[in-house]
Simulated assay, not measured.
Amino acid sequence: MNPLLALRAAELAREHIRENPGRWGCLAALLLFGPPAACVVVVVFLFTALSGASGQSAASAPGPGAVADIPADYLVLYREAARTCPGLDWSILAAIGKIETDHGRSKLPGVHSGMNSAKAGGPMQFLQSTFDSVVARHPIPPGGAHPPSRYNPHDAIYAAAAYLCDSGARDGRDLHGAIFAYNHAEWYVRKVLDQAQKYNCGAVQAPSRAAQAAITFACAQLGLPYVWGGDGPGNGDRGFDCSGLTKAAYATAGIDLPRTAQTQYNAGPRIAVTGIRPGDLVFFGTSTGHVTHVGLALASDTMVNAPDFGTPVRVDSIRRALGATRPADS
């Protein structure tokens, strides 16, 4: 359940345990019944078929943004390669592929042949020595070039999964460190986590078309700046504030919400916070008469959120919610 929060790599590592019950269920099943590979396959099937997970587990499903942006053959490779490393989500591989070469679509030197100025090559931008070392330790499954080539998408993506796994991604031990090993820069780690989050966001089965439309819109706004009173680029603002985002999200479904968090809460229909579903609005404040913040639920424990000044639209955990409403039922 969910890629990956901006400027919060350390917090993401802590939250990963709490927000990924599927992983720990997998480990429990492994202890009782069998090998890791079988357990991972079961979790991938269940989450994809039943819930469409969002977050950093190998079982997470692609969100609408991922399906629209990633070439189909690359998406298959990212998901299959991630399964070779328990705890590595496919979206991390996809985010690296996006940042490095736009999934092989970049026309820059070193993508399809030759090298760039850093001597890296191929869709995942491997140094030849690094690629050879990885392949020597982790034979690439059939389906690529003979011998394996860093320019072959199949070989490069499987090698990237193995490299990340060796560097700390296995079982989520140190995802931040694994990405940092791939490219020694904190900005790179943050960029990968942000992109992975975008690819995962919205991979949920909302209970209604209206809720699904609101979620799809909100996920497409990830990374936009927080702007006090902001109604988004469609209305001439660089970004959103919390209630501007939720209002704009439901406007895409033909539902006209009031403009502020308090008035959105008052508009209802109210539901118990114990029954939050994808698409519900989640409210925060000191009392029902003093509601100061609102987010759009992706699940019972996560939401798309325009948090505050200096922090962009992102996916956050739901903590200490004051109340919730279900505009899709209004």
Rank of each mutant, 00 (worst) to 15 (best):
N266R: 13
A210Q: 03
A251T: 07
W228T: 15
A178V: 10
T246L: 03
Y265R: 12
G223N: 02
V192I: 02
S243H: 11
C219T: 12
A185Q: 00
D237G: 12
G275N: 03
F240R: 12
R209Y: 07
C201G: 10
A196S: 13
A261K: 08
A267C: 08
Y250M: 11
C242L: 13
T263S: 11
A213W: 02
A272C: 10
A214G: 15
L257S: 03
L245Q: 01
D194F: 05
P258W: 08
P258K: 04
Q195A: 13
L224H: 07
T260C: 07
L193S: 02
A211S: 09
W187C: 10
Q264E: 07
E186F: 02
T216F: 07
W228C: 15
P225L: 07
D194H: 00
G244V: 15
H184K: 10
P225T: 08
C201N: 03
P207M: 05
C219S: 11
F240K: 13
A211F: 06
N183L: 00
K198A: 11
F180Q: 04
A272F: 01
R270T: 13
A213K: 11
D237I: 15
G275K: 03
T260P: 10
G234K: 14
A218K: 06
Q262W: 00
T246W: 08
D256K: 12
Q262R: 09
Q262N: 08
P225H: 00
W228Y: 11
L222R: 02
R277L: 06
R270D: 02
G239C: 11
A220C: 13
A210F: 04
I276Q: 05
D280L: 04
A249L: 12
Q195F: 01
A178M: 01
N266E: 12
Y250W: 08
Y226L: 14
F217N: 06
Y250L: 13
F180V: 01
W228F: 15
A218V: 15
Y226G: 11
L224V: 13
V189A: 07
Y199W: 10
V227A: 09
G230F: 00
Q197F: 01
A214L: 13
R209C: 11
D237L: 14
Y188V: 12
